[in-house]
Every structure is written in structure tokens, then in C-alpha cells.
Simulated scan of single mutants.
Amino acid sequence: MRAILLLHTGGTLGMMPSGEPASLAPGRFLDHLLEQVPELGQMASLSVEVPFNQDSACVEPGDILALAARIRATARDFDGFVIIHGTDTMAFTASCLGFLLADLGKPVVLTGSQRPLAFVRSDARSNLVNAVDLACRAVPEVGICFGTHWVRGVAADKLSVHQFEAFQSPNLPPLAEIGAEIRLHPDAGRFEHRVPAGLDGGLDLDIHTVTPHPGMAWSVPPSTARAVLIQAFGAGNLPMGRADLGAFLRHCEDRKLPVVVTSQCPYGGVDLSAYEMGRKIEAASAISGGLHTRWAALAKLALVLGAGGGVEEVREAFRTQWAGEPMPGEAWPQA
């Protein structure tokens, strides 16, 4: 059988009916999983580690870097990896790991649930079985297995707080469709690794993030900010006639702060050449986030900043596909 390392980091899946976490001693937690889902023992030779146990809203950059480091350190010992993770920040963790582990050559499958495994009616059981199955299939991808799909981590976003189909991949077809059989996309595991060297040492999240709304006043970023991420309207539009927005962008340019623009719309992404407002933003030295999700954009920006990069390094990062994230003009056919 395939050797699979299961890393439990917390979240809803491992909770008891009382709302308390299950026993966290690795051996006891494995016993708990096998009691609830005995078929896991027939699917793979499972080992369990509990690097941390917390609500995913509390995940810090160091936690994600520690996960990446642990997976790299044990890559020779296991055929695949499953990460149990809370849903709230799973897409961000999956985006970071998708870049950090793009060259691993083995499957890394993140999963969780909307209801605990110990509940009678829960999505945890099927998500866990499917995640272990995918981890055994030698498809070198980092992705989220949830509901009836496995989606690439650097293209994923959370869709719902209560539906079992909780995650989506808005601008890239799923890696796999999960039903009576698991149907892998023919291009799953096929992407060119272009993550620059030296980007695994830090995630600098001193990033000023802005989600504008009509009539919003624009205040300059705090002095500690090293970059700005704007989730703009539509294809990347902002109210460029506002004097305070103009001052905001000039301030960023003077401070040499990279300004990356993504879209509030999950589908379609940013095209700063499409409308006059977008062209004015581009003329103010802003960088198009293209089809990057908000989480992939944040992860890529944090990795570049963590390696000491500035405006030009960020600009290059967002016009380069690092790990199979969707890019304008690089369509991936439907399965």
C-alpha cells in the first residue's frame, strides 16, 4: 500500500460532538480516524502528525512555512500527503503551499469538512476518503479535495460557509471530478514549475489590502506596509477621478510600494487595458493581478516580499505562471 502522511492542523473535521477537539496524541488521533472511517486502513499505510491544532482563522505565516518544511523533510518517506485544515483560510494555505511545493513531485491534498467527523450527517467521511484516495494516485499537485471536486490550490477559493461543495476553482477546471469514480483531468499534474529560487524563506504579509466601495475615502497605507493589494471593481476599475485616490497612488509610487490589482469578481479576472479607468490605473504603475484569486495574489506577493523583492520583482511575478495558476491567454481545456 502507498505510505501517506496525514497532517492534522485543526478545523471542524476533528471536533467531537461537544465541539471539543479530538485527542491530539498522534496515535490516538489515528485510532479515532480508523474507528470512524475503518476503510482508510485498507486504502493506505497511514501515519499521523499533529503539527498544530487551531481554528484556521488563527493560522500564521510561520505555520504554513512549517507545514511546507515538514512535507519536504519527509518527502522520501511518503508517497503522498493529506492535510486536514479548517475551511476559513484553507484557500490561502493551499495557495502558499502550491507555490512552495510546486516541485515536490508528489500529491499534497488539503481537506476538511463543514461538519465534524463524529456527527452522523457529515461531509467529513467522504472528504477524508477521497483525499486519501487522491494522495495515493501519484498526481504531483497541491490541491483542495472537498465535495465532488479536487481543485488546484493556487486557483482555489472558498464558495460557501454551509454547502458541502464549499470550494471552487473559478478560472481553471477542477483537477478531478469525484463521483462513483474519480475522473482526473488529463492535464492534472502537468504544469511547468517556474517558481524563482530563494522564495521559500519567508512570507512577508505586511501588505495593505483594500476592497473599495463607492464613495470610499482613500487614506495612504500605513508606514509599515511593504505592498498594496487592491480588490477592484470588475476588470480592475477604480474611481480614478477622485483626488484622494490619485494621491494614494502617487504616495505608493513615491514609496516604491508594489500595487497589485485583483478583481472583486471571482470569474474573469483583471484586464487593465479593457476600460479607461483601468488604463489610468496602469499608467499610475499599478500591476495587474490577471486571473489570480485573492489568495493566490496574496501568497505570491508575500513570497516575493519575503525574499526581499520590490516593484520589479512583483511585476515579473504577476506576468509569469509559477505553478499552474490560471493566466490570461493560457486557457486550460475542459475535461
Rank of each mutant, 00 (worst) to 15 (best):
A232K: 04
E253R: 15
A225M: 04
V260L: 01
N237P: 02
E276D: 15
T262Y: 00
D244W: 12
W218R: 07
G215P: 01
G246V: 06
P239L: 10
T209L: 07
A225Y: 06
S263H: 00
P222Y: 10
Y267E: 12
N237A: 05
G236R: 00
R242F: 12
S223T: 08
L238S: 01
A232C: 09
M240R: 02
R242V: 02
F233Q: 09
T211A: 09
P239T: 09
N237F: 01
V259W: 02
R226N: 03
V210G: 08
Q231W: 00
P212C: 03
H251D: 15
L238E: 08
A235C: 12
P222W: 10
V210I: 14
P239A: 13
K256C: 13
E282M: 04
V260K: 00
L245R: 09
A217V: 12
G215D: 10
A274H: 09
K280M: 12
F248R: 07
P239Y: 05
G236C: 02
P222N: 06
L249D: 10
I281V: 15
V220F: 07
L229C: 09
P221I: 11
Q264P: 02
P266N: 07
S219W: 06
V270N: 01
G246W: 05
D254C: 04
A274V: 12
D271Q: 10
A227D: 05
R279F: 01
V228E: 04
R250S: 14
Q264M: 06
E276R: 10
A235M: 01
Y267W: 03
G236Y: 09
P239E: 09
F248L: 11
G246M: 08
D271R: 13
